[in-house]
Design a protein around this nucleic acid. Structure first.
Length: 285
DNA sequence: CGATTAACCTGGAAGC
DNA sequence: TGCTTCCAGGTTAATC
């Protein structure tokens, strides 16, 4: 999925439903999805859910943490007395849980003794859950390699500096997690469109003014993504099993062949660094 | 060092 | 209907 806005939506859902609950049991149905020792988690209380870029960290009371990355098709779905039935994002019937993609199931219990489940589903099995000591989260390869976080330590001067130091085309640079964290294909495309910048431009060639326009556009599309609960273009769903709606507000992503709403030119699709880039050849300069 | 490609998987959509 | 090919919110290892 899941880029910053989708992962942030998941984080907020987890924060709402699982913080304060105790982990009673973990059912691992596909061993490769779960790295580490589940015994380190049993009997502990969930205290906090953090997000770094597209990564999640669930901290427990015993100083152990579950780190997670949902990659393309991972889902965390909570089922408990607070939530209603879960609905499949495309089909109008309840999501069956567990299903053949439910690879890890956390059995939780609240203070009143009421039980609930957290399902980790993943169709393509690219995601991972990894148990690490809380103090060692940031020395894990994935978290260690992350660049500055939009909305936190990414400021305009830092952003300009990142651009000025790179000979890469601007679009793949936005998606490089070591340069800045959280941006993926959808929001990189839409931010460049919003800023009116050609995705093929060499990063260091952006002017002072273009750098600022892109910075503002980037934060703005990410904010909009969060506001709409993420983009459920393919399999993404939130912790309640519901859809996001940012896919209804895409600016250029997936719109090749359609007319640009700014200048009526036809949006085209090209390949950059192996990924689809969508842009308006007329008004993105 | 940077840039490109393959690999990890499954399923949906499009083409023939 | 069926078979083939391409494509998918990501990361990482291998190769050029």
């Amino acid at each position: 999925m899941p880029e910053l806005p989708e992962v942030e939506t998941i984080r907020r859902g987890l924060e709402k439903y699982i913080v304060g609950k105790k982990i009673n049991h973990i059912d691992i149905r596909l061993a490769k999805m779960f790295i580490g020792t589940k015994q380190n988690l049993i009997g502990s209380r969930i205290e906090e859910v953090r997000r770094y870029g597209k990564g999640l960290v669930i901290d427990l009371s015993n100083k152990w943490s579950i780190t997670a990355h949902v990659k393309m098709t991972g889902q965390f779905i909570y089922v408990g007395k607070e939530t209603k039935k879960n609905f499949h994002p495309k089909l109008e019937f309840p999501l069956e849980l567990p299903n053949k993609y439910s690879h890890v199931i956390f059995h939780l219990e609240d203070d009143q003794g009421s039980s609930s489940q957290l399902f980790y589903n993943d169709i393509r099995q690219f995601g991972w859950l990894k148990v690490v000591k809380t103090l060692e989260v940031h020395s894990q390869p994935f978290f260690k390699a992350l660049g500055p976080e939009p909305f936190a330590d990414l400021t305009l001067p830092i952003f300009r500096k990142i651009l000025s130091l790179s000979a890469m085309p601007i679009k793949p640079l936005l998606m490089d997690q070591s340069k800045l964290s959280g941006v993926g294909n959808i929001y990189a495309n839409d931010a460049l469109y919003a800023a009116g910048i050609d995705p093929r431009r060499k990063s260091s060639s952006l002017t002072h003014e273009e750098g600022e326009r892109l910075f503002v556009a980037l934060l703005s599309v990410l904010e909009k993504g969060i506001k709409y609960g993420g983009a459920s273009e393919i399999t993404y769903m939130n912790v309640e099993g519901g859809k996001g709606s940012y896919q209804q507000h895409f600016l250029v992503y997936g719109k090749d062949g359609e007319r640009c709403t700014r200048c009526r030119e036809t949006i085209i699709r090209i390949k950059q660094a192996g990924r689809s880039t969508f842009y308006c050849p007329s008004c993105q300069k």
